[in-house]
Design a binder for these strands. Structure first.
Lengths: 164, 164
DNA sequence: TGTTAATATGCAACAGAGTTGCATATGTAT
DNA sequence: ATACATATGCAACTCTGTTGCATATTAACA
């Protein structure tokens, strides 16, 4: 499918802009969304971002395009609703967005929040744990998991300090 | 008439409250916190609340005490930091707080958010799933899980509608 | 019981991330 | 090319949570 295809290309970092835009448009069309300038740009930045991204970061990265800050909000809302991106809660009341993986709308992996540096990551390589065996009365449609602790970068820094 | 009736109820309630206050003070002392009026009151309301509670709700419930709104924020922050209550992210940028269970600081159970009615619940009877097998580079200290879908109440309402 | 130091609280003001309303622009189907 | 649905820019707003400072309060101690 198209989604998997463009992710592979992206991962290999061999895409050119035109090819990428083509794929981005395909994603939007698949979701029955218009391929507006704002949406293409936002989605491109998100695809290039390793980590979940805030409205503000997106706005900054796209300031050359003249996109309005409110439009960033609206685009992200639309993309989220259509299942293309997922929203991440970091506990600081700032929403962050990241592209969903593997045809999965919503969260399909845990997220890690470092209490030291504040970095927030999608743990894409790790599966969401099995749904807890909740009572049958609850209809569980989505599952989010957040892990908090020390990220590898901070851990190695702390380790280095200890070695001194 | 009404006043006397209320007073009788109040007296009975007062006895329960006194016992409860004793326990509350013990909790606070255990955490090396002062047993201030605000803290006792807030903790009491939280202990009586089946669901995670917002600052605003707490402030409303305690308006007879004259507690300042800012103090509600501060008390909750203090209680959270000391591990007595945990904070719940519902995705609406409003924090909710609930008492931690069973000597466990932080999250020790999943939370359920109903997309229909917005109700947010601690699923206390259900254990947090096993920590996902994240790479060893990550030091996982805390784990939060949120389940989203339809709560039993809304599910039965929808069912009733269907039966008509 | 009184004293005192640490810290909790009330108050007023503020910050900022996200939202709203409306006029205009734009994408796309025909 | 036209038309319609909706995306966007702009200005203003909302509201949840935070800050700073003066005063009140708790609890340890003598």
């Amino acid at each position: 499918m198209i989604l998997i295809h463009w992710r592979d290309n992206f991962t290999a970092r061999q895409n050119d802009a035109a090819m990428n835009e083509k794929n981005i448009r395909a994603i939007l069309r698949k979701a029955n969304l218009r391929c507006t300038r704002g949406r293409v740009d936002v989605l491109q930045v998100l695809l290039e971002s390793p980590d979940p991204t805030t409205h503000e970061d997106l706005h900054k990265k796209l300031q050359g395009t003249g996109i309005n800050r409110v439009t960033v909000y609206r685009v992200l809302e639309t993309l989220q609703k259509s299942g293309i991106v997922h929203r991440v809660e970091a506990g600081d009341r700032i929403w962050r967005f990241a592209v969903c993986g593997r045809m999965h709308p919503g969260h399909c992996h845990p997220h890690f929040i470092c209490r030291q540096c504040g970095k927030i990551e999608c743990l894409k390589e790790f599966p969401m744990p099995d749904m807890p065996s909740v009572a049958k009365d609850y209809t569980v449609e989505e599952q989010e998991m957040y892990l908090r602790g020390i990220c590898p970068n901070c851990a190695s820094k702390i380790k280095n300090l200890k070695c001194k």
